[in-house]
């Protein structure tokens, strides 16, 4: 994971720790499901890539994803949420139509840079 050397926090979206003045009394967490703020995508060393010609929208990947990272848009599979995908490869392995391929994260990042 890339880190900001100045304050040693992730630059991929993990917020800096709150000071005690910002924390509610009793340390209560008031925002249910706020782990969304913590992006586990930085753990990933392999990235799932879809072949949209092969995907039949069966959603088997969705039911087996441990991180709820398969995006569903308008009732259809719309790829992966890279903020949270840890790159385990279950979707790729279980896809009944072999539509998901795992590629190395560094290769995927390099490719994304070329496209830019």
């Amino acid at each position: 994971m890339k880190r900001d050397p100045a304050n040693n926090i992730s630059v991929t979206g993990v917020p800096s720790p709150k000071s005690w003045r910002e924390i509610p009394i009793g340390g209560v967490i008031t925002d249910a499901g706020n782990s969304e703020e913590y992006h586990t995508g930085g753990w990933r060393s392999f990235r799932p890539i879809w072949d949209w010609q092969k995907c039949v929208n069966c959603k088997v990947c969705w039911i087996y994803c441990p991180d709820g990272s398969i995006r569903i848009r308008d009732g259809a599979v719309a790829g992966i949420d890279l903020d949270y995908c840890k790159g385990c490869g279950i979707c790729s392995k279980e896809c009944p139509h072999d539509a998901i391929k795992m590629i190395e994260e560094s290769a995927a990042e390099a490719e994304a840079k070329v496209k830019q």
């Binding site: 586990t40 753990w43 990933r44 990272s69 840890k86 279950i90």
Partner: peptide, 18 residues
Amino acid sequence: LAPGHRLCAGCAETIVVR
């Protein structure tokens, strides 16, 4: 169950919980 939890990659626990 929101994403961003710290279970290992490929852990079956959250598959079951979801």
